[in-house]
Amino acid sequence: MTDSNADAARADAQRFRETYESIRAEVSRRMVGQADVIEGVLTALLAGGHVLLEGVPGLGKTMLVSSLGEALKLSFSRIQFTPDMMPADVRGTSVLVESEGGGHELQFEQGPIVANLVLADEINRATPKTQSALLEAMQERQLTIGRRTIKLEEPFCVMATQNPVEQEGTYPLPEAQLDRFLFKLVVGYPEEGDYREILRRTTGEQEVELSSVSNAETINAMRSTVRQVPVPEHAEDYAIRLVMGTQPGSAYAPELVDRYVSLGSSPRGAQALLLGAKVKALLAGRFAVATEDIAAVARPVLRHRVLLGFEGLSEGVTTDQVVDEVLAKLPVPEEAAG
């Protein structure tokens, strides 16, 4: 291996950090506070995943995603999910249109999901039938309607929001749907110091106009850089054991998991851990994944992949507690190997 390759890798990593920082700074011009959420959304976008944002109304979830669309100069569409929405409203359908010669013909009208950034607002208000319309698009990056298959343009990222409070009239996302989100980010209330800035920006005369600091091509290049980051064996072992630690009955599961968890993470969770950790490693100025990168993304990656049992729900155990317990009890592979 020549030094030129190493130099190229260093240059890619440097470019990655700079672009990332510029996007973050631009989004932060409109979005006050919520640094962790912004970082999580950007990490998921650059890792090639989708994000589920959970928070009570009024915290700026929708604004964050729309700001990201503006800053990245990507095609952006917003779908407001409602109980009477049909899958065709998401994916698109064939409509009868009059042809030039006076006749009629079926013409496919693509749905709002065909975009780079898709904001699925209040996704849990739609029926599971409509929610599942996103499954193929999120995993395969394509749509199949009838005999027509549409390849979705990269970067494609679904950012869904849901409100954890108003559960009446909602349909919790099925496990298959949840598993397709790389991160689940919990949007909390802003800090006390952020309130003044929020009020100043949102109640004044001037609106904050965002400029596009990146584009689809740059995002795709950054995604490619992320994929090149190597993962050493001990980090792979750590990610595997971390995922296995969420599965009740496994050798790495702590007592809390055995008792309260009914379903652990799938291998897709390990993939998400490594992809998120690669972005973290690049942002930390390293060229390989470390165990601390994996631990840093463990919560957003695993919290929606762990299904609590009845006893856990009745005891008030949260999935974040489960992930923290697994992290605390799981030995680093080198220490375990002794």
Partner: peptide, 14 residues
């Protein structure tokens, strides 16, 4: 990575 014969750019950088 030192034990690997052929290293990628990122491995060499690491």
């Amino acid at each position: 990575f030192l034990r690997h014969g052929a290293r990628t750019g990122f491995q060499q950088a690491a």
